[in-house]
Simulated scan of single mutants.
Amino acid sequence: MPVFESTEKMYEVLGGLFTGLMNDEEVFEKALKANITILFNISEPNGQIWLDPKSQGVICGKADLKPDVTMELSGDTCHHFWLKNISLPVAIAKRKVKTKGPLPKVLKLLPLLKPAHEAYPEIAKANNLPL
């Protein structure tokens, strides 16, 4: 059974995590300077989460935007990434994450994700997700 019981729950948890990340002034400024729109196409459950600091921040669901980078992965892979059980380079190498677009740009953003990695275990716990 997938970690997220529904798309709505996934949006609540991951959308909230990303919104918190974009509300961090330092992270937001660096994301804005990176000038990148990322689309997460997530399966199990199916959904889309957009990170677009240039205009709208975080969008859960379909949007009329053009992504610079698309990442395809499962909800479970998202969950394990934020718990630091799997690194992005390893997930890509094992094809748990499929990417389209300039991956070096995404990899430069990884250090900015530290606040999200720190916050996610508590978010997961508060939402009764396995740790």
Rank of each mutant, 00 (worst) to 15 (best):
residue 71 M to V: 10
residue 72 E to R: 07
residue 72 E to C: 11
residue 74 S to T: 15
residue 74 S to F: 14
residue 78 C to G: 06
residue 79 H to N: 05
residue 79 H to F: 09
residue 79 H to M: 01
residue 80 H to R: 05
residue 83 L to E: 00
residue 83 L to D: 02
residue 84 K to Q: 09
residue 84 K to Y: 10
residue 84 K to H: 09
residue 84 K to G: 04
residue 85 N to E: 14
residue 85 N to A: 14
residue 87 S to G: 14
residue 87 S to E: 08
residue 88 L to H: 04
residue 90 V to F: 13
residue 91 A to E: 00
residue 91 A to I: 04
residue 93 A to D: 11
residue 93 A to W: 15
residue 94 K to G: 12
residue 95 R to W: 14
residue 96 K to H: 14
residue 97 V to L: 03
residue 98 K to M: 08
residue 98 K to P: 11
residue 99 T to L: 10
residue 100 K to H: 13
residue 100 K to C: 10
residue 100 K to L: 12
residue 102 P to D: 14
residue 102 P to C: 06
residue 104 P to F: 01
residue 104 P to E: 00
residue 106 V to D: 02
residue 106 V to K: 01
residue 106 V to M: 13
residue 107 L to N: 00
residue 108 K to M: 05
residue 109 L to C: 11
residue 110 L to P: 14
residue 111 P to N: 06
residue 112 L to M: 00
residue 112 L to Q: 05
residue 113 L to N: 08
residue 113 L to A: 08
residue 115 P to R: 00
residue 115 P to L: 07
residue 116 A to N: 02
residue 116 A to D: 03
residue 117 H to I: 06
residue 117 H to C: 05
residue 117 H to Y: 15
residue 118 E to F: 10
residue 119 A to I: 02
residue 119 A to V: 00
residue 121 P to L: 05
residue 121 P to M: 08
residue 122 E to T: 08
residue 122 E to C: 04
residue 124 A to R: 12
residue 125 K to N: 12
residue 127 N to H: 11
residue 128 N to C: 10
